[in-house]
């Protein structure tokens, strides 16, 4: 199980080319709107359609909210990536929060340890083309999503 996961990661690493990198720090609630605008700028630049843009930014908004609520902020790496002939946006959300005890449960619709609807993580996954989550209790959480221009 562990082995296969590593190979798929390296596989996708060889296929993916990073064209552009941009870092964004989230410390307070007011950073969310500028962050969403930054993501939008990158998405517009690669010619992503309005519906996919909206899906990407909504997913990003959910993940940023989690970061603020549970980890008091964190950092996001915004990348323009390319796979064969398709371009896309990859967002990597890194926080040093408490981590998620049960990732499987956190990915279920309607489950929340806070007071929210529990749609954030599963919703963000549905809205993205690719979604990976890595969480270590006591260390933090890293969520990576990719939205392809036409995906």
């Amino acid at each position: 199980m562990e082995k296969s996961r590593i190979t798929t990661t390296t596989n996708s690493m060889t296929i993916l080319t990073v064209l552009n990198k941009d870092n964004f720090k989230i410390e307070k609630e007011q950073d969310v709107v500028p962050f969403r605008n930054r993501v939008k700028e990158h998405a517009v630049k690669i010619g992503m359609g309005l519906v996919n843009q909206t899906k990407l930014i909504t997913a990003a908004s959910e993940l940023v909210r989690n970061m603020l609520r549970y980890a008091n902020g964190g950092e996001i790496l915004i990348e323009v990536v390319s796979k064969i002939r398709e371009n896309g946006i990859r967002l990597t959300f890194t926080d040093r929060g408490p981590g998620i005890e049960n990732v499987e449960r956190a990915m279920t619709d309607g489950f929340s340890t806070g007071k929210s609807l529990g749609l954030g993580l599963p919703g963000a996954k549905r809205l993205s083309s690719e979604f990976t989550i890595n969480s270590v209790v006591g260390k933090g959480t890293i969520v990576t999503i990719i939205k392809w221009k036409n995906g």
Binding site: V51, Q53, T54, G123, L127
Partner: peptide, 14 residues
Amino acid sequence: MQPAVAITLIELGL
């Protein structure tokens, strides 16, 4: 509501 927002809301599960 913008069409793209409606599409996104349903996919989000709301």
